[in-house]
Amino acid sequence: MEQTDNAHVQRYLQRLRDASTDLPAGTRNELLDNVRTHLAETTTGADEVQIRNALDELGTPEEIAAAARTETNPRTPGERLYDIATVLTLLAGGFVAPFLGWIAGVVLLWNGPRWNVTQKIIGTLAWPATATLTLGTVVTLNFVNHPAVFLMAVLAMIILIAVCVHLLVAAARTRN
């Protein structure tokens, strides 16, 4: 990326960075990279007038950012809804319809296109693992009102919520 240290070129790229802050990170980086490469190509060895012409021909940074906004797929609302519904069903479905609600969450999870296999396995095991741990403590101590059972239940809730947050963050990252 040599030869892009010209002040006009630098100011142009800064304006493009400012105009594109609302774009998804991946789209924005690719755009900035492409325009930087373009300017390296068209302004290398060019004199002041040629550099100004190259920038004029490129159009304003705001115009390019607007074009990128038009080309970016605005499908996100529906996708986000699916991801949130999946995680909520997985977390609380079992309370609404014992066992069946959890099954529904697992089905949604494995049909979700924005989680990898590891995340799907973690999501599937979250409830059985935490429930087994809590019940295991009850059985071992043979006493429900023991403080250790309460602690175990709290720990189980924390693990469940952490898994749900992890799944939501992972899905949001893929949506971008």
Partner: peptide, 28 residues
């Protein structure tokens, strides 16, 4: 390569706006 594409399109006056708008299009 992109600059080549831009030059050919500009030569035919086929671009709707500034040359830079080709990049979001190519990404899509």
């Amino acid at each position: 390569y992109a600059v080549e594409l831009v030059r050919e399109l500009a030569a035919h006056q086929a671009l709707a706006a500034g040359q830079g708008t080709i990049y979001p299009l190519l990404s899509r």
